[in-house]
Design a protein around this nucleic acid. Structure first.
Lengths: 183, 183
DNA sequence: CAATTAAGCGGAGCATGTCTCCGTTTCACT
DNA sequence: AGTGAAACGGAGACATGCTCCGCTTAATTG
C-alpha cells in the first residue's frame, strides 16, 4: 500500500473513533471523511461499507477483552462475585459506542457477518468464564454459552438505548447470574 | 373531524400496518403515503412523527395483552410453566413488527415517550404475572418488575435482530425464569 | 340549493445522508 | 526527470424525511 493511502487509512480510523463515540455508530460517514480531511470517495475506497469501518474501530478494543476476563476472575469473593464482575465488564465493553451492543450481538449467530471475528472474541471470553464456573461445579446443567452471550447482549442493548447507569444494569445481571448458577 | 380526513386516517393506519410488517418500523414513510394514495403532507398532518404512527399501529394489538396473560396463566403445569408461557407470549407480542421490541422497551423508563402508555401496558401485565408468582411464594426476593421487563425486552430485541426461532428463544427465557423463581 | 369558508389535501421542493464515477494529483520506481 | 499506476476528492445521482402553501372539497348556512 502506498504511504499516503496508509496514512489516510489510519487517520480515518482515528477520526471515526471520535465521531462514533460522539454521535453513535450511525453518524454520517461524510462527516468522518470531512473531519479527516479527505473526500468521501477516499473513505469508501478504504471502507466499502459502514460495517467495515465499525470492524476497524472495534479491532482496537477487542484486544482488551482477554485482559478483562483475567481482571474479573481475580475479583475477591466467590464464583458469583467473579461471574458478576465479568458480566459487568462484558456489558461495559459492549456499550463503549452507542449502537455497538446490538450490532455485535446480532452477528453472534451468523457465519458471514463482517463483525464475526469480533463477536467471536466475546463469545470465547464468556465461554472461558463459564468453563471456570463449571470446573467449580457451580454452573447449572444445560446452560449454553450462546444463550448467555445473547442475554448479556440484550442487557447491553437495553442499557445503551435507555442510557442506563451501572447500578440500573446490575440487578438484571443478578437475575442472569441466578439463572446461570446452581441455587 | 371531516369525513374524508377520518377515512384517510384509518386507511393510513391500515397501510402502515402492512408496510411496517413487511419492511420493519423504519420503512420509508413516503411509501406508506404512496400506497395509501395520499400525499406525504397528509400523512405528516395526521401523524407528525414516525412514533405517532407507531403508537397508532400498536394500539390495535395492545388490546390483546390482557387476554394473553390469562391464556398463559391457564397453562397446564406449575408456576414455572405458566411463567414461561407468559414470557414466550411477551416476546412474541414484542416481535410482531421488526424493530418494535427495542423501541417499546427503550421507552419503559422515560415518562415522556409517545409510546409510554403502550409499554406501560406490557409492564403492568408482567407485574400482574410476577404478583401471581409471589402469591404462590415462588418468586425470589428483590426481583424488580422493571428489570424483568427489560430482560425480556432484551431477549425480544435479540430475537428480532437475529431472526431467532422460538426454540432458540426458549433457553434464554429458561435462564431468566431460573433467575426470577426460587430454586 | 347555491354560496361560503375553513379543514383538508397533495406534491413540489429543501435538507440531509449514502455512495459512485471519473478527471486530476501524487507516489514510487527507474 | 520521466512514467505509469495507485490514490485522491468532489460533483452529483439517488434515497428518505419533512414542510410549505396554493388548490380542492366537505360541511354549514341563509
Amino acid at each position: 500500500m502506498r504511504a499516503d493511502a496508509q496514512r489516510n487509512r489510519e487517520r480515518l480510523i482515528e477520526v471515526a473513533h471520535e465521531v462514533f463515540k460522539e454521535r453513535g455508530l450511525d453518524a454520517p460517514l461524510d462527516e468522518v471523511a470531512r473531519r479527516a480531511g479527505v473526500g468521501p470517495g477516499t473513505l469508501y475506497r478504504h471502507f466499502p461499507t459502514r460495517e467495515a469501518l465499525h470492524e476497524a474501530i472495534m479491532a482496537t478494543w477487542i484486544e482488551e477483552v482477554a485482559g478483562q476476563v483475567e481482571k474479573a476472575m481475580a475479583t475477591e469473593g466467590g464464583c458469583r462475585e467473579k461471574l458478576l464482575a465479568w458480566f459487568e465488564e462484558y456489558v461495559a465493553l459492549l456499550t463503549r459506542h452507542q449502537g455497538a451492543a446490538a450490532k455485535i450481538t446480532a452477528s453472534l449467530g451468523c457465519q458471514d457477518s463482517p463483525l464475526r471475528t469480533k463477536c467471536q472474541t466475546y463469545a470465547d471470553a464468556n465461554e472461558s468464564v463459564l468453563a471456570e464456573m463449571a470446573d467449580h461445579g457451580v454452573l447449572r446443567e444445560g446452560v449454553d454459552n450462546l444463550d448467555v452471550c445473547r442475554l448479556l447482549g440484550g442487557v447491553a442493548t437495553m442499557a445503551d438505548h435507555s442510557s442506563l447507569a451501572p447500578e440500573d444494569v446490575r440487578p438484571m445481571l443478578d437475575v442472569i447470574a441466578n439463572g446461570v448458577l446452581k441455587a
